[in-house]
């Protein structure tokens, strides 16, 4: 499978992804799934800057759902990123992410969010979305960097 990492990270492409995961997984493309970003050229320009020489593809959720099979069969190794959990859930609806490991990277604190890990702050809706993604077959765990401990969803949602 050519998508080597599915990750939720509100910062999308940044140091942890490019240096931390990039050195480990050597991606040949980043796939950014985000409805607003897919429409916004000036923002795409900025996110491309962070990826260095690695090309970046932008897609809306709907387009991503159509192209997921193609991406998976692509010879290029790619990292797929969404900025929030809701987008990943919409991408995975109808078991599209069944069997895939979904990595929770970074969601920082804000209104309505409670700290689950130092780098992970969840709302009630986030928790609901995560449960639904699991029910549809995705395997979810948090890990900010490749050498950090992997924290499975069952531990994250234990109150």
């Amino acid at each position: 499978m050519a998508i080597v990492l599915y990750r939720v990270d509100e910062r999308l492409i940044h140091g942890q992804v490019v240096i931390g995961w990039g050195h480990e997984l050597r991606p040949e493309a980043y796939l950014l799934v985000d409805d607003e970003l897919a429409e916004s050229e000036w923002e795409q320009e900025l996110y491309r800057l962070g990826a260095g020489a690695v090309p970046v593809d932008f897609a809306s959720v709907e387009e991503a759902r159509r192209r997921l099979g193609e991406w998976r069969e692509d010879a290029r190794r790619s990292i797929l990123l969404t900025r929030d959990i809701r987008t990943m859930r919409r991408l995975g609806q109808d078991r599209l992410l069944a069997g895939a490991s979904v990595n929770l990277g970074g969601i920082h604190h804000g209104p309505g969010r409670t700290e689950v890990l130092r780098y992970l702050h969840l709302t009630e809706e986030d928790r609901e979305d995560l449960r639904s993604l699991t029910e549809e077959g995705a395997e979810i765990a948090a890990r900010d960097l490749p050498d950090a401990p992997r924290v499975p969803l069952s531990t994250l949602l234990k109150d």
């Binding site: 910062r11 940044h14 140091g15 490019v18 240096i19 607003e36 916004s40 923002e43 800057l49 260095g52």
Partner: peptide, 16 residues
């Protein structure tokens, strides 16, 4: 707000 979100990554990595 979206500009600040998008630009912080590249401004960090390019400068470092």
């Amino acid at each position: 707000r979206r500009l600040k979100l998008a630009i912080r990554g590249p401004l960090g990595s390019l400068g470092d």
